[in-house]
Simulated assay, not measured.
Amino acid sequence: MKKKLVVIHGLMLMSLLVLTGCFNGITIPIGDGNTMSIGGEEGAFSISVQGEDGLVELSGNEDGILFSSDEGSLQTYREIPDHFPSDVPTPKSDDVTAVGSFVTEVETEESNGFILSFKVEGDEKQKYIDMYMEYLESNNFEIEKSEEEYETIIVAAKKGKDVLNFHAFGGDDAVFTIQILENK
Score class of each variant (00 low, 15 high):
137 E>F: 00
29 P>F: 02
165 N>G: 02
67 F>V: 15
150 Y>I: 09
111 S>P: 04
135 Y>G: 00
172 D>G: 09
67 F>T: 14
92 K>D: 12
91 P>K: 02
58 L>F: 10
157 A>L: 02
178 I>T: 05
89 P>G: 01
22 C>A: 09
109 E>T: 14
162 D>F: 04
5 L>P: 00
105 E>A: 09
58 L>H: 05
7 V>A: 05
23 F>S: 01
115 I>L: 09
1 M>A: 08
83 H>N: 15
52 E>G: 11
177 T>Q: 12
137 E>S: 02
45 F>E: 04
138 S>R: 06
25 G>I: 09
132 Y>S: 01
96 V>T: 09
94 D>V: 13
117 S>G: 06
102 F>D: 02
52 E>R: 12
155 V>C: 05
49 V>F: 12
86 S>G: 02
70 D>T: 15
169 F>E: 09
31 G>D: 03
28 I>Q: 06
160 G>W: 09
157 A>W: 05
37 S>G: 07
13 L>N: 08
153 I>E: 03
65 I>H: 01
181 L>C: 01
167 H>L: 08
17 L>A: 09
46 S>Y: 14
67 F>C: 04
159 K>S: 13
50 Q>K: 15
48 S>Q: 14
14 M>K: 10
48 S>K: 11
132 Y>E: 00
139 N>D: 00
3 K>R: 13
130 D>V: 13
101 S>N: 13
39 G>N: 10
94 D>H: 11
168 A>D: 05
161 K>H: 11
129 I>A: 02
112 N>S: 13
25 G>F: 06
146 S>N: 13
175 V>C: 00
150 Y>D: 10
158 K>C: 00
76 T>G: 04
129 I>N: 05
151 E>C: 04
131 M>E: 10
46 S>D: 15
135 Y>F: 13
174 A>W: 08
162 D>V: 04
135 Y>Q: 00
105 E>D: 04
121 E>Y: 09
12 M>F: 12
176 F>K: 01
171 G>K: 12
154 I>E: 06
96 V>I: 15
103 V>P: 09
